[in-house]
Simulated scan of single mutants.
Amino acid sequence: MNNIQNIVRIDECAMTPKYLQLINSILEGIQSGEIKKNDLLPSINELSCTLETARSTIERAYNELKRMGLVTSVAGKGYFIVQTCFHKPAKVLLLFNKLSIHKKMIYDAFAATLGTEGAIDFYIYNNDYQVLRKILDEKNGYYEKCVIIPNFNEDKEMGYELIDSLPKKKLILMDKLAQGISGNFGAVYEDFENDIYSALVQLKDRLDKYHTIKLVFPRDTYHSTKIIRGFRRFCQQYSFNHQILSCVHNEKIEPGCVYINLVEDDLVILIEKMIEGKFRVGKDVGVISYNEVPIKKIILDGITTISTDFALMGEKTAELVLKNSAERIAIPFKVTLRNSL
């Protein structure tokens, strides 16, 4: 039992739920032969104390191992390993640049699609090259697949160079393809230029009642500049006055303008200015917001959104893991027309 307590571990820095970390540790111990058939697992109280983790977390992990047929419980005696033969799940290192509602949608769909076929270790590197390098130096050799959303606030080229150095048979990029990362690897991504162009074409009938379209593209954003290219292509082809704004703090709202925001902070500022100026949204001015979230159904009687299908992105990425595929899949944008336009 003491040996098992030394094998199981929880990484407080990982975003992977603790009960899953515990399950994965026990599975790894079985695979390595350190945990054998008929071994007695630590009691829920003992392991809770050792790992400084809630009893409910240990109980949930043990119940899942029971469901998998690997563990049984005997009243008055505890939990025992009863089976050591099982399908080996793919070990996946999942690296997101940040947390958000949309990233949660991706993660939930990714984890649900993998199910018991994958063991996920999930980390956030906060758009920071140094943090990503530290995680990869410590973790990368232990995994069959490394799934990365490649976004950096600084040292972008160094970040891409680091990712490019990874074995391509392990690598899957999510969200975007990045210049400087080459080779035969899998990817599930947004086609930024064509996505915004196609979305605006779908909205053209509504846009025709405005004379100017303004894209709010923050100066220090990690968003792809291909968005600007697709935006300009649409405006030039259909003869719209257009402007790129790096900041909206000093923007004077004028009738006849449509604003496209990429980040939620800018949306809040725009809405405040429109309410203060008593503009009728959807009549005097228009708003198009990137990325669908439930609250946008309600704000201003509905905000028009253009958005990637984040759940589909997670599902398709998991499928690449399960198929060990180097396929590249573009996830199309979805337009949701509401009263803000």
Rank of each mutant, 00 (worst) to 15 (best):
L99A: 15
E276C: 09
S56N: 10
N97F: 02
P17Q: 04
L47A: 15
S246P: 00
I149L: 12
L245A: 08
E292C: 09
I303A: 11
I30N: 08
I196W: 10
I35E: 14
G183F: 01
D191G: 05
E315K: 04
V92K: 12
E327F: 04
M274Y: 01
L200N: 08
L114Y: 02
T16L: 03
I253S: 08
M15C: 13
L41K: 12
T116E: 14
V92T: 07
T317I: 00
V71M: 07
S239P: 01
L177E: 15
L132H: 10
H102D: 08
E157V: 03
A61T: 03
A111T: 00
F185Q: 12
S56Q: 05
I23Y: 11
S100I: 00
L166D: 04
L173E: 13
L132W: 07
K104A: 14
C257N: 15
K168C: 04
K273V: 08
V281D: 07
D220S: 03
P294H: 05
I58D: 09
L177S: 13
V74S: 15
H211E: 06
I35Q: 13
D137W: 01
P294T: 07
K316T: 02
V131T: 13
I124W: 00
F333V: 08
K323E: 14
F86H: 09
Y142A: 14
E154T: 06
F80Y: 10
N151I: 00
E59Q: 12
L337W: 01
V188H: 13
G76M: 00
L20I: 07
F152S: 09
L177Q: 15
R9A: 15
K252P: 14
I299D: 01
D301F: 06
C247D: 15
M158S: 12
L40G: 12
Y62F: 05
Y79W: 05
A311N: 05
T317C: 11
N151F: 13
L136N: 09
D220E: 09
N241I: 02
M1H: 11
E59W: 05
K283G: 11
N97P: 14
I101Y: 11
L322F: 04
I4T: 10
N24F: 01
